[in-house]
Design a protein around this nucleic acid. Structure first.
Length: 227
DNA sequence: AACAAGTTCAACCGCATAACA
DNA sequence: GTGTTATGCGGTTGAACTTGT
């Protein structure tokens, strides 16, 4: 059996006091982040390392942007969620000053409901209440890629021919610049058009799936296309 | 004013995995 | 190569707060 991360008998739980916050801030200012397991004892805190790390990363870090989400941040979260799903740390990484916990909470308390009220399934970002045949076929491609922020450094890999291209440059044309919520789930990438469009009748293909995720260690989303 | 119901968000828990011995 | 430990992540919880009756 794995040992608990700390001695539970001697640790505080629940809300942090101002004194505890100050101890943590002072310690990290002096010694820097890291070695969370030994930090509580060294800093004189009766908390487990996990709790200290969470308090620091979600609340005390000086670069955290607090307060309401701006409209463009909201749009970006929706678009990134369509692309990456519930990978909150990855989403938060694209929103400077926002934490994964904050993005996750905002999604669950605001954005999910907003999408539902618009008739959009927040799980797959598809229009939920319109019979499928009425939708344009291009909605079958279940990813939203219209933000330069989200994909400027992403790679796109076609499973067909192993072609790798820079999604940022490919997708730049898709960014219209208006701040309206854009839930068009189209990827119209010039270099990928052959993968997404049936060359015989020039119609979008239904059987192309787009899978997004971080592959490797660079934390950048990679798009995989499968027929 | 008092209470119930709904909402928000900080914090916790358990799991996966990276790092290390 | 294997076992152990530390860290990070996503899901969940529950206290505090807000809104409605």
């Amino acid at each position: 059996m794995r040992k608990p991360c700390c001695d539970k008998q001697d640790t505080n739980k629940g809300a942090w006091s101002k004194q505890e916050d100050q101890k943590l801030i002072d310690y990290i200012r002096t010694h820097g982040e890291g070695c969370w397991r030994s930090l509580p004892k060294a800093a004189g805190l009766h908390r487990c390392g996990k709790s200290c790390r969470l308090r620091w990363t979600n609340y005390l870090r000086p670069d955290i942007k607090r307060g309401n989400f701006a409209q463009d941040e909201e749009d970006l979260i929706i678009k990134l969620h369509a692309l990456l799903g519930n990978r909150w740390s990855l989403l938060a990484g694209r929103l400077p000053g926002r934490t994964d916990n904050e993005v996750k909470n905002y999604w669950n308390s605001h954005l999910r409901k907003k999408l539902i009220s618009m008739g959009i399934d927040p799980n797959n970002h598809r229009l939920d209440h319109i019979p499928r045949p009425q939708l344009p076929q291009r909605h079958d491609i279940s990813a939203t890629v219209t933000s330069k922020h989200a994909v400027s450094n992403a790679k796109v890999i076609s499973a067909d021919n192993d072609r790798v291209s820079d999604a940022g440059s490919c997708l730049e044309d898709e960014t219209s610049g208006d701040s309206n919520l854009n839930l068009d789930l189209t990827i119209s990438v010039p270099s990928l058009s052959s993968a997404l469009v049936d060359e015989d009748n020039n119609k979008p293909q239904n059987n192309v799936s787009v899978v997004a995720g971080a592959i490797g260690s660079d934390e950048l989303p990679t798009l995989l296309l499968f027929r």
